[in-house]
Write a protein that binds this DNA or RNA. Structure first.
Lengths: 405, 405
DNA sequence: CTGGCTTAGTTTTGTAGTCGAAGAAAGTGA
DNA sequence: TCACTTTCTTCGACTACAAAACTAAGCCAG
């Protein structure tokens, strides 16, 4: 199954947004929703009724009066339908189920060897999703402990899987769900993830780039009121996701945000997996930091080791982190001048690395138009390891909720 | 008068789009419009009737039959209402009136000394617009010859001015119409163009950056079917305009597209008017080329002289043009990777400079993701000197037509 | 030259989404 | 108890659009 177009009614009072307001606790009653959405009370009532009929919302008794009639409290049913989400990384994958409000119901992290190829890797992850979504998963599933919120509900299809969202650490043609020339995923080039998965699960499958999903997740959870935002994912690789006018911007080929092979000044310019030299990814990615440290004779096993060195104040590692921050800042400066977003947020495992963030900030302020940085927020992406699957779930839910109403 | 938000119904069958299809000749009958817009015949009929009542459209007899009833031909009335437009440049301004389809009715180029300050410059240009819009302007107006299409119509308010659009060669806060920290416009910082003009003409005034207007004009006339486009204006200064999802992207502060002070590699890095060194504008703008040639001891009076040298194959000038093209290409490569547009088009006086265009193209293909350049169009902006006022007029018409219907 | 087919456009009717006003429901507080 | 507030529903109206039926006006084949 392939999805061409994002639904239109996600924003400004669409059923999806009402759902989200209730889910986040921003709204508890119909009156709250009316105030938040700007829709008339009658319209809200009508939509809420539809959502209740779909089982996406329920009334949970009366709330506290504020001087008048008590509100009839609304909530997203717990234990109801869920969507599955996979956030594939270079060495690990985060797999989870989320309820239709976008809250994580179950999540676990699995080790992954991306070089095993798509069939094997995706096969294992799909099995894991199936296990999580199965009614009694919380008790029977093996592996990492996960918080069980799985009180199966009374009414019918409890925990039914409604869709699956997958994030890939490489370029994805969103329209077709196909992977195109990934630089760090041997054996995956041209693989049609959506088709592969659609053959194994009986629900809509949506595939997108991992940075896009992080962007969507972060925007929905932290910046939903902002129109234009840029999110950088700095982990083993480097990617970015773009929100334009409140919507994920994918560009002509769905390749928007792929800044990993932009050239930055670096001396010497390290060679990149893409064949060129001096790419952002070859200077500032986690993989690049590992390589650079090893080249200096410092033995590090992986990115975790590098981050530990930086946290410990190791001189070489810190210098490299600063250089990486500057490099990201350089590219981001062009992006900020060009795109003029309200917020730039950095996520991924390198986002917690203080020296990197500091020099990125400094470079941005130095190189951007004052007008562009005047009110610009430069932040860390908040929600941690679940931000990717959160974004994936939102993408799927947008599709599912829109389709049903 | 200040305009906060672009009207929403410009796209997909809005009255404005119907008008444009008729104006461009894409549609001649109601049936054509129905097919093009996807709207039902009844809706189109209704809208067309409204447009005719507003005097924005007229019936011009019957057309050729294609096997059935003959279509009733539609056309935009000539000599009807117009909007004024000013495209202010560093040394010249293009001033014109355009009919409500966006066609230029009258246009002329005036010399301008930007350093005379906003009151004097804008005062003169406003007077010129008033003269053009006056009923008998075509015969009485002085100055550069202009094609007179000014046959005043029969029905009532012939040639009435409905709005005014102004393009400024510097950063403009579109929401307020105020100029912010322009690097090349001494005495204009903080000036409220919209307020100044609104006090002198009795119609809505919309102010925007000149590159934005070029982008809008070029997109509407040449690429209206494309969703994402980037337009570079390379003249005395360098700017860009961005179309995202078919709409002008202005960003958080209305400063989007201002890439003039992005740093590029250049040795030696020439100082920029902004105080930094190595800015794109200091390397690749027309002003920079003039300065660089003079520094090499080659006497050139202005940009025209530089272009002539390049056309004559002068070695130094050509080398500089290539360097400028590379610099623009470098920045544009980041932009293309990040934004993934369907088209990148270059306009402004330097766009006709072959060596510059060639090295810009080469740099783009070298530095961008293959996926991003695979189907990317790299073009010259077509319409020449009227593209700026065309964009300005479109902006105004969008506002005026939407307001009236 | 007449009926069948095609294209063009209008009119009528219906539907979906939204708003606003009115009012019902259910409380607070003096 | 009564005035007032807040919450939520109901109902009528309006708008945008579409579907279908219909009128208008041509083509062409027999």
């Amino acid at each position: 199954m392939t999805i061409d177009e994002a639904p239109r009614d996600v924003l400004r009072g669409g059923p999806r947004e009402l759902l989200r307001w209730v889910a986040t606790g921003a709204a508890v009653s119909r009156a709250d929703l009316s105030r938040l959405s700007g829709l008339s009370p009658s319209t809200v009532s009508q939509r809420v009724e539809a959502l209740i009929n779909q089982g996406l919302l329920e009334e949970t008794g009366a709330g506290r009066s504020r001087g008048g009639r008590r509100p009839r409290q609304l909530a997203v049913p717990t234990g109801g339908a869920v969507v599955g989400a996979i956030d594939l990384g270079a060495h690990h994958a985060r797999v989870g189920t989320l309820d239709l409000s976008g809250r994580v119901v179950q999540g676990r992290t699995l080790p992954v060897r991306i070089e095993d190829g798509p069939e094997q890797v995706l096969g294992a992850l799909l099995a894991e999703v199936a296990a999580l979504a199965a009614p009694s998963s919380a008790s029977t599933a093996s592996g990492v402990a996960s918080p069980s919120t799985g009180s199966t509900t009374a009414d019918g299809a409890a925990g039914a899987l409604r869709g699956l969202g997958i994030g890939i650490p490489g370029p994805v043609q969103h329209a077709t769900g196909r992977i195109v020339s990934p630089s760090r995923m041997p054996g995956w080039n041209g693989f049609d993830v959506a088709a592969f998965c659609a053959g194994r699960v009986d629900v809509p499958v949506i595939v997108d780039n991992d940075a896009n999903l992080m962007a969507l997740g972060a925007h929905r959870t932290a910046h939903s009121e902002l129109d234009h935002a840029v999110y950088i994912k700095a982990g083993t690789g480097i990617g970015s996701g773009v929100i334009s006018s409140g919507r994920l911007h994918r560009g002509a080929q769905g390749a928007a945000g792929d800044i990993s092979h932009c050239r930055v000044v670096a001396d010497p310019a390290p060679p990149c997996t893409c064949g060129n030299a001096g790419c952002l990814e070859a200077v500032a990615s986690g993989a690049a930091l590992v390589t650079a440290l090893r080249d200096q004779g410092i033995p590090v096993s992986d990115l975790t080791g590098v981050i530990r060195l930086i946290d410990d104040g190791d001189r070489h590692a810190t210098a490299l982190a600063r250089q990486a921050g500057r490099a990201i800042g350089e590219i981001l400066a062009v992006v900020v001048n060009f795109f003029n977003p309200q917020v730039v947020a950095i996520g991924g495992r390198l986002a917690d690395c203080e020296p990197l963030l500091a020099s990125m900030r400094a470079t941005l302020y130095e190189r951007c138009l004052p007008l562009a940085t005047q009110t610009l927020l430069i932040e860390r992406v908040a929600t941690g390891q679940d931000i990717g699957i959160t974004g994936a779930a939102h993408l799927v839910i947008d599709h599912v909720v829109a389709a049903h109403s």
